Computed example of a mutant assay.
Amino acid sequence: MTYPVWPAELPRPERNTWSRTWADPRLKRRGETGPPRWRRRFSAVPQTVSLSILLSRWQVAVFEQFWENQTRFGSTLFRMPDPTTDGWALLTPTGGPLLTPEGQPLLLSKLWTVSFGDEAPVQSVVGIEFRFSFSIVVMPS
Rank of each mutant, 00 (worst) to 15 (best):
M1T: 14
M1H: 11
T2F: 11
T2R: 13
T2H: 06
T2L: 08
P4C: 00
W6L: 06
P7A: 15
P7S: 14
A8T: 10
R12K: 11
P13V: 00
P13D: 00
N16S: 11
R20A: 12
R20L: 13
T21C: 04
W22L: 14
A23E: 03
R26P: 11
L27M: 11
R30N: 04
G31F: 00
E32K: 01
T33P: 00
G34L: 05
P35N: 10
P35M: 07
P36R: 07
R37C: 09
W38L: 12
A44H: 02
Q47K: 07
T48R: 13
T48F: 05
V49M: 01
V49D: 02
S52R: 08
S52K: 10
I53Q: 03
I53P: 15
L55F: 06
L55M: 02
S56K: 04
S56T: 11
S56L: 03
R57E: 10
R57H: 12
W58V: 05
Q59N: 03
Q59R: 01
V60K: 05
V60C: 08
A61L: 13
F63A: 02
E64S: 10
Q65H: 11
F66M: 08
E68L: 06
T71S: 01
T71E: 02
R72V: 03
R72I: 03
F73G: 13
S75M: 14
S75H: 11
T76Q: 09
L77E: 10
F78Q: 00
R79D: 00
D82N: 04
D82K: 08
P83I: 02
T85S: 12
T85G: 03
G87W: 02
G87R: 04
W88S: 09
A89G: 09
A89V: 14
T92Y: 14
P93L: 15
T94I: 05
L98K: 07
P101Q: 12
P101F: 02
E102T: 05
Q104I: 06
Q104R: 13
L106K: 04
L106E: 07
L107T: 12
L107N: 06
L107I: 05
L108T: 09
L108Q: 04
L108P: 14
K110S: 12
W112S: 01
T113W: 00
T113M: 05
V114Y: 04
V114K: 10
V114M: 09
V114H: 10
V122C: 10
Q123M: 12
S124R: 08
S124Q: 10
V126W: 15
I128W: 03
E129Y: 12
F130A: 11
F130G: 07
R131V: 14
R131Y: 15
F132N: 02
F132G: 03
S133H: 08
S135E: 13
I136C: 14
V137P: 00
P140D: 12
P140G: 15
S141Q: 12
S141N: 12
S141H: 04
